Amino acid sequence: MSADTILNAALTLGDINGWERLTLTQIARYLKVSLADIHQHVKQKDDLVDAWFDRADAHMLSRFPQQGVSLNRTQRLNLAMQSWLDFLARHHKLTADMLLYKLEPGHIHLQAAGVLRISRTVQWFREAADLKATHMARIGQEIALSSLFATIFLHWLKDSTKHQARTRERLQQALTQGKRIRLWT
């Protein structure tokens, strides 16, 4: 058994019953293992959310560098962010449930970890887009990109259009505005 096996089981069961109702005990029963076996790979249920987002990061990064394809930084950022969201789309509702779970008032520790999670993904977006800003320009870029990412992700969570078309359009508009003011350097 591996952490990937546990996450796959969690995604399967979560799609059926929702994230709120999912327990590590249910996952253990589903996999026919003990809770101690689960504990070797997962210390708490929220670790599965991080693992899900880590998979999205890995998927997005597998798209870079693309050999023989010349994209400007804005296009690379669009590809990075969109491929990240597209990966999560296979469990769109469950991903929304995961985020709501993190945002519950009693989960302050999960919310703090969520800020670090956003920062980690944003850094990978910067790498994928080959952004080279330094010092104050980098700080401004990171703040802008973190805000954009959080806004787009929240919009994506509520977007019920086919292939989240409204989110794609909104992302493209925001990235184009950033390009106009030379934000993506």
Rank of each mutant, 00 (worst) to 15 (best):
P105Q: 01
Q67A: 11
D97G: 06
L94I: 11
L22P: 05
T74G: 08
W19R: 03
D57S: 13
A51F: 09
D46Q: 13
H107D: 03
V122K: 05
S62V: 01
R90G: 13
S62M: 11
A89M: 14
E104R: 14
K102S: 14
Q82F: 12
W52I: 04
V122Q: 00
W124L: 14
A36E: 01
D37C: 13
M60K: 04
V122P: 05
E142V: 11
V69I: 10
H59D: 02
T74Q: 11
V42I: 15
A112H: 06
D130E: 15
H59W: 08
L131C: 09
K102V: 15
I118M: 13
A112P: 07
K45H: 05
T95F: 03
Q67W: 07
H91K: 12
H59T: 04
F53E: 10
A144S: 09
A51T: 05
L116C: 09
D47V: 02
L116N: 12
V122D: 04
A128C: 02
T23P: 01
D57Y: 03
R73S: 15
D47H: 14
F149T: 12
L71T: 08
G114R: 03
A80P: 02
H39C: 04
H59V: 00
L71A: 15
A58E: 05
L22T: 03
H91E: 10
F87L: 03
K45Q: 00
L71F: 10
L110I: 05
T121E: 08
G106P: 07
H41Q: 15
V33N: 04
Q66G: 12
A89P: 02
F53R: 06
A51D: 09
H59N: 03
V122M: 02
A80H: 06
L100P: 15
W84V: 14
R138A: 15
Q26Y: 10
Q123S: 05
G68A: 00
A58M: 09
L85S: 11
I108P: 04
Q40C: 11
D37R: 07
S34K: 09
G140V: 07
V122R: 00
S83G: 02
R138H: 05
V122I: 13
K93C: 07
F53K: 07
I108S: 11
Q141F: 08
E127I: 15
A51E: 13
T74P: 00
I38M: 04
V33T: 08
H59L: 02
P65E: 06
R90S: 15
I27Q: 06
I38D: 01
L131K: 04
L79F: 04
D15C: 14
H39L: 07
H41F: 12
I38H: 02
V115E: 03
R63S: 06
H91M: 10
Q66L: 11
V115D: 00
W19S: 02
D97Y: 08
L100T: 12
L61G: 05
Q82V: 13
H107Y: 13
L88P: 10
E127Q: 14
R63M: 11
W124N: 10
V122G: 03
Q40M: 14
M81V: 15
L61Q: 12
Q67M: 09
R55W: 01
H92D: 11
A128D: 02
Y101T: 03
S83N: 06
Q44M: 10
R29D: 12
